[in-house]
Simulated scan of single mutants.
Amino acid sequence: MARTHKAWATRTARDRSDTPARGRLLDAAETVFARRGYGPATIADITAQAEVSRASFYVYFASKEEVFRVLAARVRDAFLAAQDVPGVDLDDAHAVAEASTAAFIAAYAEHLPLLRLVEQQAQADTEVAALWQEIQERPVRRHARYIRRLAAEGRAAPVAEPLAVARAVGGMSVQFARLTAGRPSAYSKAVRDVTVMYLHLLGVAPHR
């Protein structure tokens, strides 16, 4: 039992490291799940896609279920990162709206096949269900905090409670991202349209 615990502890520590091999396995897993679906996808498919041995897979992940959960967490983090807009003045609501909208739509469109699988697996796996809840809620609540700050500083006049505005903007972004996933050429217009509607809901006049 002690040996098993030690092996698990070693693998867990390695999981936390951002190594190229682990990243390659995650990218391969996302490609395989998107192409084959959750059920038919196998560890052999993932290692073949990543061009690594099966043993290499087990250095970082215990199972197919675990690598899928890690992917779901990575998508959650991508949506949270979409609200981090380096190089953009956080006091400039217009710039933040455009940059965060662009990043969110791009992230959602990129991960759409996986997101669909996460939603499906959430029905059968409680850990995935918790991650799916986070994917839906954490970006919205973080966004709502930003809107509250703008309103408190007198730089925005939201048309509704900040959490409601954040949910509305998130919903619009998701719908436009789904369109963009099928028509990448529509991306720029989608970002413009959502940004305009976002600023309206925020109670900030668009640039003239």
Rank of each mutant, 00 (worst) to 15 (best):
R141I: 03
E134M: 08
P158W: 05
Q175I: 01
D15Q: 12
R16C: 01
A205K: 14
T180K: 00
Q175R: 12
E161M: 03
P162K: 06
R36L: 14
A93W: 00
A124W: 08
K64L: 09
T126I: 14
A166W: 01
Q120A: 15
E119D: 13
A130E: 11
A190I: 11
E161G: 04
V159K: 03
R74A: 14
R167G: 02
E134C: 00
E119Y: 11
A109E: 10
A129E: 11
A82T: 00
F33G: 05
D91K: 05
G23Q: 15
A160K: 01
A97S: 15
V128Q: 13
A73V: 02
F33L: 10
A152I: 01
G203E: 10
V85H: 14
A168E: 07
R178S: 07
A21F: 01
F104N: 15
V204A: 05
A186W: 05
L115Y: 11
A190N: 05
G154V: 13
L71E: 03
V169N: 03
Y187S: 01
R3G: 06
A122R: 13
A166P: 10
D89Y: 07
L117Y: 02
R142K: 09
R116E: 13
R76V: 05
Q49C: 08
A152T: 12
R148S: 10
L90T: 14
R16D: 00
T4Y: 10
E30L: 06
T47D: 02
R116Q: 10
Y58G: 07
D27H: 09
L202N: 12
R178N: 08
D45E: 01
H5K: 12
I105G: 01
D125F: 10
F176Q: 12
D193P: 07
V96H: 10
F68K: 06
T126G: 00
V128P: 09
A107K: 10
